[in-house]
Design a protein around this nucleic acid. Sequence first.
DNA 1: ACTTTCGAAACTTTCGAAAACCTGTTTACA
DNA 2: TGTAAACAGGTTTTCGAAAGTTTCGAAAGT
Lengths: 257, 257
Amino acid sequence: MAKILKMPVEIVDRSPATTAPQDVLREDAATFEVLRQMREDILCCVLKPDQRLRFGELRQRYDTSVGTLREALSHLVSEGLARTEAGRGFSVAPISLADFLDLSELRVYLETRTLADAIRNGTDAWEAEIVSSYFLLSKLGKPTPDDPVSLKREWGKRHKRFHDALVATCTSPWSLHFRSELFDQARRYHWLTMIHARSRRRNEHLELRDAVLARDVDLACSLIERHIRNTVEQAGSEVPGLTLHAANARSSRRTKG
Amino acid sequence: MAKILKMPVEIVDRSPATTAPQDVLREDAATFEVLRQMREDILCCVLKPDQRLRFGELRQRYDTSVGTLREALSHLVSEGLARTEAGRGFSVAPISLADFLDLSELRVYLETRTLADAIRNGTDAWEAEIVSSYFLLSKLGKPTPDDPVSLKREWGKRHKRFHDALVATCTSPWSLHFRSELFDQARRYHWLTMIHARSRRRNEHLELRDAVLARDVDLACSLIERHIRNTVEQAGSEVPGLTLHAANARSSRRTKG
DNA sequence: ACTTTCGAAACTTTCGAAAACCTGTTTACA
DNA sequence: TGTAAACAGGTTTTCGAAAGTTTCGAAAGT
């Protein structure tokens, strides 16, 4: 019948901001679904670091064609979750403590930068989403190695949602874009930590939430910095195989100059 | 033919460092060549901001199949040089002064961070490449709007090579990766500046080179910061269409071959 | 005069198969 | 016995066409 004129209300209005890169292809479309699944599988180490990704197996696993897979893999390479070499196809990106250290250092900067800006531009809707996403996160409690995989997955989702909520009102699209990419990278290491680490930590998310809601920029930034550094330390000391350097690519041929 | 055992000598040996994202797919392969060409065409505004990228025209222009184009476009979307929407195909990413400001702010951080680290880890080979690439850059002199396109292109190449050389010994793969992406983004605006701006600037590259070779971290960092900020200012004041918000989608059918 | 409906053209998306490629093994030859 | 070329199997890469959407314009209706 008549066209509906009422606009959908967005919780956080990012649209009038500046032009930015695109984190997502398109919401429907088969390619996007395959990409989403593969990314999740790599993040949760169902597809293990350095594992070779043969089209035969992938075609079966995701029930799709080679072309579609190629496009999804192409994206994953850009995101740093997969690699490819001339004529030898694709493989899952390796992991190492050195890599985790490196990306975490940059994360400290990007998370603090985006968080500080987000706090300065915070709105009621932003606060509401923080409260809400923290509630959902705290309801689960950080999984231990004995918890089922489904719980770990759900926790991972809610953890991401909470951290995304914190920086949602940041006005720098590029900062948000890179922050998001690095956060996903870190998720691979978080997963390994959930699987292996048994030590307990303070409720850093609660402290973070309160500092942010109190609009205390300095405190919030130093809290998130510690949050990131603690995670690295925990992974480094409690995840076997990461303590050394792990991720030995046996296919390295021309690595010396 | 016997296999050649002599290895190519790399100027800067980055391979043994930590694992990192991949800036390039594969060195040969048709897809890579198409990607390289399209990226160059977007960077040099042969494919204009917001221009729609139809497969029919692209297939003709780059003489390749739809699948290959799709893979290349997919990469460009990840790099933020193209966009895509469900069922409506691809288009060149828009530009705006707001975008240039945003990405330049982040560039200031990444360039100073990588440069400082590179200086601390500088080697003889690194210095040599800086001297060499500066020489090539200075031999050309910054093009004015009246210079031919080929000269502008060559200058763009040498400019990139010089700036890459400066940070080549940085030990953080992730920082280098993001720095490189942002540098390419900035190249689109540099191109517009070359086409329109007539004002002259000091020889900032020479000052930069000398500060870096003198291993003066603070001076070098403040110089590159000014270098970036000056470029933004020049673009903002001298590039028509960017002073407002630009990105006019003039629906031209085909830019001739 | 304006809106809606319908249909055809243009375009995008997906797929499977042919061609090219790499790898490891066998075979020929010194 | 050692080296190198030839072969075979499995994979990757590329392509063109079928299937599925969107867009545009004309005709019908209000």
